[in-house]
């Protein structure tokens, strides 16, 4: 059965044991949202999460219409469907430190600090950071950025979307 009753993401222990780095590593992510020439444009819903084999996926950020009355913007969260299945459906919204507004076309920067907030502590291993975008009356796209933890100094990962996402880049700093 694919169901698992996951704890709401608390940033502790979900992905492994606590690792306390001397200086906190930061994941710096740039998510390119393409400017599209379409008759009806809505900013995409975007979910960003990390997966590690055998561990519960951890949602880092979700950009959606969080400010609609009666939380109506959550109705379409399920359309970010890989994320919804991996993590979103076990969460409640708005989610502290995760919920964010939709973003305009362009390069959107966001960073996550290890040991803090939604990223929490990461145990050493191989991870994938996943960015999924789904646009109302538009399409959907997923890009995957594999990375090793702890990262090597100067490591960076890039991926290129083709329709709903542009260039997506991840690097690390302390």
């Amino acid at each position: 059965m694919q169901i698992s009753y996951r704890l709401l993401l608390t940033g502790t222990a979900a992905l492994g044991t606590m690792a306390v780095p001397a200086a906190a590593q930061t994941l710096n992510l740039t998510v390119g949202i393409p400017r599209l020439s379409v008759a009806e444009y809505h900013r995409p819903y975007v979910a960003i999460w990390v997966e590690k084999e055998g561990a519960t996926p951890r949602t880092l950020s979700v950009w959606y219409d969080y400010d609609m009355k009666k939380g109506e913007g959550t109705k379409w969260l399920r359309d970010v469907r890989q994320w919804w299945r991996a993590s979103g459906r076990t969460m409640s919204f708005p989610a502290d430190g995760v919920t964010g507004a939709t973003r305009a076309p362009g390069d959107n920067k966001i960073s996550f600090v290890a040991g803090k907030g939604p990223l929490g502590a990461l145990s050493p291993g191989n991870y994938t950071l996943i960015v999924e975008a789904a646009r109302e009356v538009g399409g959907r796209e997923v890009v995957r950025l594999p990375f090793a933890w702890p990262p090597k100094p100067g490591a960076s990962v890039k991926a290129q979307g083709s329709a709903e996402l542009g260039a997506v880049a991840l690097n690390f700093s302390k």
Partner: peptide, 8 residues
């Protein structure tokens, strides 16, 4: 068959 939100 798959829905999100607090009610639908």
């Amino acid at each position: 068959t798959t829905l999100s939100g607090t009610e639908s």
